[in-house]
């Protein structure tokens, strides 16, 4: 079953085409890597899928809803974690969870029970009453991810979720992503780390607003006769007009 279907999606800002006629689809439960150099159009494409930007032309269906006309329903079915740290530092851990759960309409009683379960799972029981600003960055990112899937969305969009995080925490973070995918949550992730691209079921690589490659990491390595995703990426990025690397 496809949870994201995009056909000829285009976004222009004035004369600049940020996203140029892209088409792809994502299966339920898949971990979909969305790669590209800075300025390649990743964020713009992702924002259209989240209902933040209106496409100039083309069609997109996310979680069964049209992104142009049913953006409110799209928003209710997805989770989102931005590249900036998005929890409130001056709120306590449980207050952050309650805030986002409240926004997404998770009932109060269920929120209470699941907050304790979640904190136990993360090993954060002692930090329930701590202000988020007192937590180390890695912990915060894990907490932010847990919060973004707290309401059991169909799809979670992660915009460079592991930026600035140490390798051990990154590893743990990806374990959390796998768990979410096992629960049936589709993961749509952008990243700069090419080793992380290897963890994805399939990756797409954007160059100058177009999708230049889309397949599983192993198939892409074969196609470009490359030893790693890093090589594949560099091979494609070299073709870019504005050469973001």
């Amino acid at each position: 079953m496809k949870v994201i279907e995009v056909e000829n999606l285009t976004k222009r800002f004035g004369s600049f085409t940020a996203v140029d006629n892209i088409s792809f689809s994502v299966e339920k439960g898949e971990i979909f890597g969305f790669l590209g150099a800075n300025g390649a159009g990743k964020t713009t494409a992702m924002r259209m899928l989240c209902g933040l930007l209106v496409p100039t032309s083309g069609k997109g269906v996310v979680a069964g809803y049209d992104i142009q006309h049913q953006s409110e329903k799209v928003k209710a079915s997805i989770g989102y974690m931005s590249q900036k740290f998005a929890l409130y530092e001056d709120l306590k851990v449980w207050e952050n969870i309650r805030l986002y759960a409240g926004i997404y309409g998770v009932p109060e009683k269920e929120t209470k029970e699941r907050t304790d379960m979640l904190l136990a799972e993360l090993g954060f029981e002692k930090e329930k009453e701590s202000l988020v600003k007192s937590l180390p960055l890695g912990w915060r990112q894990k907490l932010a991810f847990s919060v973004s899937i707290f309401h059991n969305p169909e799809i979670v969009f992660l915009d460079e979720p592991t930026g600035g995080v140490d390798p051990v925490t990154r590893r743990q973070f990806w374990e959390m992503i796998y768990k979410a995918s096992e629960r049936g949550i589709t993961v749509f992730v952008t990243t700069h780390y090419m080793d992380e691209a290897e963890y994805c079921n399939r990756v797409s690589i954007m160059v100058d607003g177009r999708i230049d490659a889309l397949d599983s990491p192993s198939a892409l390595r074969r196609e470009f006769a490359a030893a790693s995703m890093d090589e594949v990426f560099r091979h494609l990025a070299r073709k870019s007009k504005n050469n973001g690397l």
């Binding site: 989240c50 209902g51 933040l52 409110e72 928003k75 209710a76 997805i78 989102y80 974690m81 931005s82 590249q83 900036k84 740290f85 998005a86 929890l87 409130y88 530092e89 986002y100 926004i103 997404y104 309409g105 969009f157």
Partner: peptide, 13 residues
């Protein structure tokens, strides 16, 4: 500035 507005705008609120 903190990026929380983006998260709020993506939410159904």
């Amino acid at each position: 500035e903190l990026g929380t507005m983006e998260v709020l705008l993506v939410s159904p609120m």
